[in-house]
Design a protein around this nucleic acid. Structure first.
Length: 322
DNA sequence: CATGGGTCCTGAGTGC
DNA sequence: TGCACTCAGGACCCAT
């Protein structure tokens, strides 16, 4: 998402919308009437592109367009004549003859168009959120943000987030630590791939009860989360299946994945075969040696079910790795 | 409140 | 070849 934001920042800021075509109204959550969504955008000029967690923020006064791509949403800036790819659900036409096309095979993405006051805390929050590296600030009530964005936790790079703070957020929780990493109200921005990679890098088992994570473990986990995200951004994102950035380019981080989608393949650190489990309802990849299950808990009974190896669809095969 | 499971959706893969 | 079935996952909804 950070790569998408950066590319859109270069591509569509200062463009003026002249027409909007919504072909799959279900993607537009607010306003309820998708035609109204288009009408409100027409005539507006895009001022800035921000990001909070996995939410893309497009500031087009007097509105904020909150866009979530889920797994497979894609934005592409095209000339009006360029042939259209299938699964194009929303088209934003600009006065300069270009258009921004939103594609989404799975149709899971969402768009919310939120009114932004011309002054006051609502505007201030939007301005701050559209600056990269802005520290965490709770949005004011006057902004009618979608609940997922309203309740979003801090960015992992926020200096306010320390190992101690992270452990505090884990305290008293019995859910697996991976479930809390994926919980966007705890920390913003981690999905299944980066959660698995960070846990591996921290040497922490995903099913470890979050409340049992020590300050020391929280510190290595936070460092791992930051390192994984930094490397993924530098590589242009992870194109495990279909991800492309605003120029249609694939990312490169899938070649650096240590465990995700690599069940049965050797751990890059110790060469043990990577195992695939189900934790927090998601496919979960671990190195059984680098991420040992705590002995004390093993006796209390396993809650982790083993799954058969590499059912095929999930991700990278050995081709090209290493 | 915390937790876990079902749901949305389509395409790719698998097995018979 | 064709068809039924499973799987992938982010956020949301719901039952316990």
């Amino acid at each position: 998402m950070e790569n998408v934001r950066r590319h859109l920042q270069q591509q569509i800021v200062r463009k003026t919308v002249c027409q909007v075509e919504v072909r799959l109204p279900r993607l537009v959550r607010t306003p309820a009437d998708a035609a109204e969504f288009g009408r409100r955008l027409e005539g507006g000029t895009i001022q800035a592109i921000g990001r909070r967690g996995k939410y893309l923020l497009i500031w087009i006064p007097p509105h904020l367009l909150v866009s979530h791509l889920r797994m497979e949403g894609q934005y592409r800036l095209c000339s009006r004549e360029a042939p259209e790819l299938p699964h194009t659900h929303v088209v934003f036409r600009f006065t300069d003859g270009t258009e921004l096309r939103y594609r989404d095979v799975r149709q899971f993405g969402t768009m919310d168009l939120i009114p932004v006051p011309t002054a006051g805390p609502g505007l201030d929050w939007v301005l701050t959120a559209c600056q990269s590296e802005a520290p965490f600030a709770a949005p004011p009530d006057e902004l009618a943000l979608p609940p997922g964005l309203r309740n979003l936790g801090p960015e992992p790079f926020d200096p306010q987030v320390t190992a101690r703070v992270l452990r505090q957020r884990f305290a008293g929780r019995t859910a697996p630590v991976k479930a809390l990493l994926l919980d966007q109200t705890v920390v913003a921005g981690l999905g299944n791939i980066y959660a698995d990679e960070a846990l591996f890098q921290a040497g922490l088992h995903p099913a470890w009860p979050a409340g049992h994570v020590s300050v020391r473990q929280a510190a290595s986990l936070l460092a791992a989360v930051r390192d994984v995200l930094e490397r993924a951004i530098a590589a242009g994102g992870s194109s495990v299946k279909t991800f492309v950035d605003g120029y249609g380019r694939h990312g490169g981080f899938q070649w650096e994945l240590a465990v995700y989608g690599r069940s049965g393949l050797p751990c890059p650190r110790c060469a043990s075969p990577i195992e695939k489990l189900r934790v927090a309802g998601r496919g979960t990849h671990v190195c059984p040696r680098c991420q040992p299950w705590p002995r004390r808990l093993a006796q209390a009974g396993r809650t982790v079910r083993r799954r058969r190896n590499n059912p095929g669809g999930a991700g990278m095969q050995s081709e090209g790795l290493r």
